[in-house]
Write a protein that binds this DNA or RNA. Structure first.
Lengths: 360, 360
DNA sequence: GTGAAAGCGCTAACAT
DNA sequence: ATGTTAGCGCTTTCAC
């Protein structure tokens, strides 16, 4: 079962076809210099005609290098991660590396399960985009700090490399923006305390709020899920706590919150302004039109791969900490001028064949 | 470089620690029955204390089985695929299989690159969720039809297994729904002709339209991207062709189309009704509120894995073709009663602290 | 510059 | 029921 056809073309076949030894073929494959160009050509011809493809398994067995990387995410259905995954996959492929994506669901057991299995498969390195309670576990399972990069969520342990955003600064910018628009009672739907990007954002929020005397912060700890956003916002609205603006810990949570606003016919930002974090594509769409703190997702992915490969290739290792600036992207959900700005409500000019709404 | 610490615990270490031979250890690992329970316990203890983890690389080299599957998608940032990937990953993990996700971008060269590389890595099987022009290429590279399952897009070659939706039926249902709501001039933003799910949906649309004498279909071929939706809808509106409803080939294309409607202050469905395909989470959200033809994404993923594993495990192989029914999910984008139904525009009752809009 | 041979860690006959 | 041994396809000394 599962055994592949014994017809596999091996290095021995190539060797005999080219009339040389296997070691010579091996040298040609790995582009060693100590091969006469005549010989090399001969071997390459044999490789070509036999359509020989070296087995990375056999190679891995002897060299210990698989060119297999893992990308750990908490939930691939959060659009933030696919965008990240794409850039990581692209950059890794350039260097001949394969990336496997694993969902941890922010559960230690899942991280453990994946890592143990992948280590058996000969994993070369790990990019963890959602470290949390599993931080120690990851490091102990891998044993070697050189083979891990944390991204998105900063690790506690600073003897590990990471590429993260300036979450604190981003939150400060965003909060100041809301304050400058006159909001004073602002809610912050936070993330779990084990996620340092979330705690950093919370700190930024608190900092900015403390700079304005009459600002009244509302804070709550929740999960990074759409449901979290829905649940928290419902509660706040039901409690009638007079919020005029809400910051969600990420765009996904903001989506959940926005659904509540829509269901209750509240307008953004006239009734409640809303903002998120991450700068995902859906937030950027006018369909959602969500103000968000952009994370330069592609850049983080690119850097993570380059850093990891560099670490895998060098003997001495010093942990690197890269912090990228964020960018505040203003959209309908906050940029209104006090009058309703949500799309159909502000319909005035109309397009082709439009029946027109007139505002009260 | 990359060489893992030579301190790896091997099967030999376990054997000597337990005072047995390597074959006995191997038997214990693979849960062979021919082992006395005393011996087994002894071995397991040794495995435990030494923290031994079998190398699947070595195992793969001899058995030809890597338990590595590839999932080919056209673009992981289309939310349809992460949902699919998640269910596939989960089902595969149950059987100890690892899934690597590859973006083909619907380009043959990319498929080729990934497959060649992965085959060297000892790929066991492939689930291709976006076959198109690369169909022949996939089959020839893999050589063995048993090791491929096509999902989502039906293959041309019916000697290969597939799990797909009833795209034709789904399109018929959807089109009839629009017709029943009085729409007659309906646009269909189609997909590329190499994607059979797209062509099947188009057939369904034509079929349903032909059943109504005064129905006027508009059709165009585009890509499976948000931009396609934007571009086509802009053109149609600019041409002022009097469309009252538009069907997009998938939810992602519908998103692009919806952006145009929003930007032009056209209401859904009062001015233009809009619908998509796939039944993604974002379409279901009231933020998008898109009528869509649900594909039972999880079920497709689950079945694909089970079918593939079954095929990998059996000697004789007969291609299976599974066609799942679709389900029409009605949402704001089409279910309106003629009056504006888009959220803020129909604000009448208001929620807590809401300033109210009154419709004209 | 090229070849011969010893493994990498495991499985699967074949012995016992 | 357990041990012995020959590879799986490749890399890598070490000779020549």
């Amino acid at each position: 079962m599962g055994r592949r056809p014994s017809s596999r073309v091996t290095i021995v076949d190539v060797a005999s076809a080219a009339g040389v030894s296997v070691s010579t073929v091996s040298r040609v494959i790995r582009e060693h210099v100590d091969v006469r160009s005549v010989t090399r050509t001969k071997v390459q011809a044999a490789i070509e005609t036999l359509r020989y493809r070296p087995s990375s398994i056999a190679r891995a067995l002897v060299s210990g290098e698989t060119r297999l990387l893992a990308l750990l995410v908490s939930d691939i259905t959060n659009p933030f991660y696919p965008q990240l995954a794409k850039s990581i996959e692209q950059e890794a492929a350039k260097a001949g590396y394969t990336v496997v994506i694993c969902n941890t669901g922010d559960r230690i057991a899942e991280t453990q399960r994946h890592l143990t299995r992948l280590l058996g498969q000969g994993l070369d390195g790990v990019i963890h985009a959602a470290v949390g309670r599993d931080e120690a576990c990851v490091l102990s399972i891998l044993g070697d700090h050189r083979r891990v990069i944390f991204i998105n969520r900063p690790p506690v342990d600073d003897s590990v490399s990471c590429v993260v955003s300036d979450n604190f600064g981003g939150a400060v910018d965003l909060t100041r923006h809301l304050l400058s628009r006159g909001h004073r009672r602002i809610g912050f739907i936070g993330g779990p305390s084990f996620a340092r990007n979330a705690t950093d954002r919370l700190r930024g929020f608190k900092q900015a709020m403390s700079e304005v005397t009459d600002a009244v912060p509302f804070m709550v700890t929740a999960e990074f899920s759409k449901n979290s956003g829905t649940r928290v916002l419902k509660k706040w609205l039901d409690d009638d706590c007079g919020l005029t603006a809400v910051i969600a810990i990420n765009d996904q949570v903001a989506l959940g919150a926005m659904e509540v606003l829509i269901r209750r016919n509240l307008r953004m930002p006239a009734d409640v302004a809303l903002a998120g974090f991450d700068g995902t594509a859906i937030a950027a769409s006018p369909v959602m039109g969500l103000t968000s703190v952009d994370q330069h997702i592609d850049e983080i992915g690119r850097r993570a791969v380059l850093l990891l490969l560099k670490q895998l290739g060098s003997e001495r290792f010093v942990a690197t900490r890269q912090v990228l600036p964020t960018k505040l992207l203003l959209r309908h959900s906050t940029e209104g001028d006090g009058r309703p700005r949500t799309r159909p409500a502000r319909a005035k000019t109309g397009g082709a064949r439009a029946t027109r709404d007139v505002e009260p």
